[in-house]
């Protein structure tokens, strides 16, 4: 099992997982379920980003310099910090969206008595 094969395998599984998430968001009718699937999709995308920054060297270090190895070795073995910074931003934003979406789901249940999008659409068409 070569390194490249394992890398591609992981990336492909993550693509699959991302599409699974989108499929879930599109086809499930329960709003809370939609939120769960949205998160699964976001996780897959975040993981993909981190993989972009990974290095195929050994040993591999996180992008934090602790001073126990020489500086040029650190440069040779540390992973790319940029995708990590971007993912950090995306994780925060994802959480913000979660808060908002779950609040809306709760409020919809209070108003309509259901969180199923089909039922809600039906009630809405009746002009409630």
């Amino acid at each position: 099992m070569s390194a490249g094969f394992l890398m591609f395998y992981s990336v492909l599984v993550l693509f699959g997982m991302m599409l699974l998430g989108i499929y879930g968001v599109v086809t499930r009718s329960n709003m809370v379920k939609k939120i769960i699937m949205l998160n699964i999709m976001g996780d897959a995308i975040n993981m993909l980003f981190i993989i972009i920054g990974y290095r195929l060297v050994y040993p591999v270090f996180p992008p934090v310099y602790e001073g126990h190895i020489p500086f040029d070795e650190f440069l040779r073995t540390a992973v790319d910090p940029v995708p990590q910074a971007l993912v950090l931003t995306a994780v925060v934003i994802g959480m913000a969206m979660n808060i908002l979406l779950s609040t809306y789901a709760i409020q919809i249940y209070r108003l309509y008595g259901t969180v199923d999008v089909r039922d809600v659409a039906h009630l809405r068409r009746e002009g409630k």
Partner: peptide, 21 residues
């Protein structure tokens, strides 16, 4: 040696896929 890392990664994403399905 990096293969060990990647093996664990592959395991992680496989489990992740199964559980999200």
């Amino acid at each position: 040696m990096i293969e060990l890392h990647l093996l664990i990664l592959a395991m992680v994403v496989s489990f992740g896929f199964v559980f999200s399905y």
